[in-house]
Design a protein around this nucleic acid. Structure first.
Lengths: 349, 349
DNA sequence: CTGAAAGCGCTAACAA
DNA sequence: TTGTTAGCGCTTTCAG
């Protein structure tokens, strides 16, 4: 593998000149530049980014931490982030946090000397994030945030989104509503639950704690929990899963138990991942502007990379309820005569 | 940020000794080692992997290229690969090839001096892979392979899998079978189609080219194509989508068009991604042993990293048909009297 | 067992 | 406009 010295020798110039040409330094004579580039081409030379990184202390690598890569939410986010990073010449080092201790991978991230980190898997009491922030390490919290931490972040308005779900379910007439929460350490789970609970209380139909179960943001767990909920004597008429993946699990469980959605059971998710609109799910859920969140995350990071001392910004993105076909009035309400019309109205968005 | 010199000074030893301690060199006196480690701990020192990489020419970074990260197949593969790499102290630099020119990212990969590359998005006529192989760059082809290239690879038996689908559909009585292919440049698409076509011909019901359409491994495209296929005067009684994602698209389209699956239309996929078994899909498909493929890919790569001259190995993994609820005899056959029984048999696996 | 010294391949002053 | 010269932080001989 050729080095810049090899091509310098071959082109009859100094190594420094080669470096200049490759970095687009304007004060290189055109003929010289041409000669160098010719050799670069001929020897198929690519500069060693490691060496470059050592001296410039810029690796052009960005660590991205996700909590569960098989949750379709993350690939969708990653796709957007990866493309934006690419446009800025940055490369993505991916970490799937699932199960791992967070300090382990963060340490790895640091050893690797990534230029910055985009965290999408932070937990509310993360000591690690706190340390990184204290060290003034360039990082942005995306989607989730950390309690009491001042850092750049791009998050959705979880409270508002969940509140909208509560309104929706309440006005449909639901009174026994179950909630399948996510990881309780995630701000997303916490806030969605809080927003839902508060709004439900406001509307005079407080949440029954017996009906709040923990699904860990996992489809399988939500599936099992739904089966369990449906088996109860006084089963809920609606289930609010704190993310779409769990809502899918609930939907599958309902199908398994031969419980019709939405006539016998309403299901609501959160995120509006791309599959949520599929006919086979047609899920009522809360939309989060993923593309914009991704763009802002990358922008926040690159701007901090360029100007480390700039003031911290917190971007909150609106969440909007998307009513599709998995919600309808509860069976009881149906018997009271609001059935067919309401069913049609809610049947399709 | 402290360097090894800082901790050397603090511990009253030479920088070389610090390096030795950190690399577990056995010939360091225990008291010395303890002193060094104490300082390392106290100063919260982490070695600079860039510098280390420069001298050892080992970055501990592995490039992983996927063709479309939102296809659930890849996250599932990535999850396994990431964990295995992690166990070996390697980190993953992810590239989503979607739309990008392959030489662009491969060049980036090389600049970054990743130790090796796992390609899951290779196209059959890839010049880039050819060049990398010629350069003896450590790489493994996973899932897809490249025409006429000798390299380490871990692929599924696509021909056999597709043949099994052909057998299954034929014996159910289907004669008008449509195929939604993937990216024609991918070996997976090519081989699955070839295997399917050959077996169908053997069974005396050759494939009608009018019914072969290109879905590019994309759900949306498959959705549209299915709608189009269903609108034809002489519509197919079965659709073989060359991956699960497209099969999901077909299923959604069928629902949209109010065509019942499997009584009016059979649908088969390929890959058996984790969602395929969900009640809402219950998709008949071809299982690929993803976990083993991932493990082998990482093994092949790490072994080559350790012993660059070892002989090339090609691992082919068996593909097995998984019959679930989306396949049944065609409507015509049903009219001939094989309906209800067959329907039940196929209705659930 | 430990220290001194020579780079790894590049960027960035500083000279010329 | 180009060349010379220091390092970046580490691993690794080679001497003690």
């Amino acid at each position: 593998v050729p080095t810049s010295w090899d091509i310098a020798k071959e082109a009859g110039v100094s190594q420094a000149t080669v470096s200049r040409v490759l970095n687009g330094d304007p004060r290189v004579a055109d003929p010289t530049r041409a000669r160098v580039l010719e050799v670069v081409e001929r020897l198929n030379y690519t500069p060693n980014a490691i060496a470059r990184g050592l001296v410039s202390s810029r690796t052009m690598l960005v660590g991205v931490v996700v909590s569960d890569i098989v949750n379709p939410f993350y690939p969708q986010l990653l796709e957007a982030i990866a493309e934006l990073l690419d446009d800025r010449g940055l490369k993505m080092v991916l970490f799937n946090a699932r199960g791992r201790e967070e300090d382990v991978y963060t340490k790895l991230l640091l050893e690797q000397r990534v230029d910055g980190i985009i965290f999408t898997a932070a937990v509310r009491d993360s000591k690690m994030v706190e340390q990184l922030v204290a060290r003034k390490f360039p990082l942005v919290l995306t989607n989730r945030h950390v309690e009491g931490i001042t850092a750049d972040m791009a998050v959705g308005d979880n409270q508002a989104g969940a509140a909208a779900v509560a309104e929706h379910l309440c006005s449909l007439g639901h009174r026994r509503i179950a909630v399948i929460t996510g990881d309780p350490r995630a701000s997303t789970s916490y806030e969605r639950l809080a927003g839902f609970r508060a709004t439900l209380a406001d509307r005079g139909c407080p949440l029954d704690d017996e009906l709040v179960v923990e699904g860990g943001f996992l489809a399988k767990k939500a599936y099992d929990l739904t089966l369990e909920l449906l088996a109860r004597k006084d089963r809920p008429t609606a289930i609010f899963a704190l993310n779409d993946l769990m809502a899918f699990g609930a939907l599958n469980a309902a199908t398994h138990a031969a419980v019709d959605v939405p006539s016998q059971l309403s299901v609501v998710g959160f995120d509006d991942v791309w599959m949520a609109g599929w006919e086979r799910f047609d899920l009522t859920t809360v939309h989060q502007p993923l593309a914009e969140m991704a763009r802002s995350s990358v922008d926040l990071l690159t701007e901090r990379l360029e100007e480390p001392s700039r003031s911290v910004r917190k971007l909150v993105f609106p969440s909007t309820l998307v009513v599709r076909g998995t919600t309808a009035p509860p069976p009881a309400a149906t018997r009271l005569g609001r059935r067919s019309k309401a069913l049609n109205v809610q049947g399709k968005e």
